[in-house]
Design a protein around this nucleic acid. Structure first.
Lengths: 200, 200
DNA sequence: AGATAGTTTGACAATAACGTTAAACAACTA
DNA sequence: TAGTTGTTTAACGTTATTGTCAAACTATCT
């Protein structure tokens, strides 16, 4: 079995699309096969079982944004310089794949016991993170009581608007999708300004 | 059929517990019946079908926090007074039922076409919201470019930390659940201070 | 006691889903 | 051409899941 055949790519593309929207249990192997326009048995041929196919998709999704997070936590960069860059990277990633946050959060909420192993596999050493957060590069925060709260605020402001996309679009932007997207892009400039205020 | 029999309550309780964690497709009627310690057929006796049982749970979940939102959007209160109260209310609601946000967001992400009707049923008139947000009570925002962004920030900071609970607990608090809960409670005081900075 | 309304149960039928297998097919190689 | 490897297909068996139905049970009222 050679990797990355055309059919294999079609399978992954359709699996992502459907798993993202309907979740693992809400998506059948037949659904994926139909969407990809191939025979269902091929899914088992390339990915042994539904579980393994899902795992592939899930790890893919995690890998699409965890490195950014890890890079920030581990980076030696000046904090003030790094935050805006981090924000832009994360928001751009979300704009490309708006469904990922809710997909990942739902899976982790279903199976929180997977967290510890996932963290290790993704190369996040939480002790490193903690040490960095307490280190000198955080001095700029001034009287900010807890650097963890700062991190939490940063992630909340970046990610939640995408996780809540349908609600936000409908309630705040009257269902106007373009207006929603435009607002998300604006946040790339807006958030660094706001977060700077947190540091004073 | 009298409402609110003991069995009916047991059904709803178990259904909430399981739907919240595993979603609609991930939970079988048998799972719910087992958890409630009753015969599966009773689920159909009281709630006709799985769809209707899920609908009951979903509407319950929505009703547990939408009124707060609507109240804020429609309230005549002084904005500066209301924000802290709003924050405390929302966070308290989340502390009671931390699983609700991810559950609701996942369902709305699966079926975004339901949003318009849901909004109407929940009594949110988005035109009213928009009008209020542009009204004079928002003047305090000063040079804040878009009141919608402010709302989005407020909700993000309140809700996301709960939607991302497993990740946050594991990465930021080394898996220490008590520390996580404590941090969430702290946010009831922290967030009003931060949001006040947005208004300047 | 006996009828009646409401509740609970076990059994059934229909469908959907998953994974396996053996056969068909394609393309390349000796 | 014949053979080998890798890919695709249809068919099958098994299990899970859902909703219905009629029978059993309970309690209450006459």
């Amino acid at each position: 079995m050679t990797l990355n055949t055309e059919t294999e790519q079609k399978i992954v593309a359709s699996a992502e699309k459907l798993f993202y929207r309907k979740g693992k249990a809400g998506t059948s192997m037949q659904d994926i096969a139909d969407d990809a326009g191939i025979n269902r048995t091929l899914l088992n041929y390339y990915f042994r079982s539904k579980d393994q196919l899902f795992e592939a998709v899930f790890r893919n999704a995690m890998a699409s944004f965890v490195p950014n997070l890890a890079a920030m936590l581990n980076s030696e960069m000046s904090f003030e310089d790094y935050v805006p860059r981090m924000i832009e990277t994360v928001i751009d990633a979300m704009l490309e794949n708006p469904q990922i946050p809710i997909f990942v959060l739902q899976e982790l909420s279903s199976n929180p016991e997977r967290m510890p192993q996932i963290i290790k596999e993704m190369g996040i050493d939480s002790t490193v993170a903690e040490r960095k957060m307490k280190g000198e590069q955080w001095k700029e925060l001034g009287n900010q009581p807890d650097p963890r709260q700062f991190m939490l605020n940063l992630l909340s402001l970046c990610i939640f608007p995408f996780a809540a996309r349908p609600v936000v679009t409908e309630i705040l932007y009257n269902g106007d999708n373009d207006a929603y997207i435009e607002a998300m892009k604006q946040r790339k400039q807006l958030l660094p300004l706001l977060l700077k205020k947190f540091m004073i």
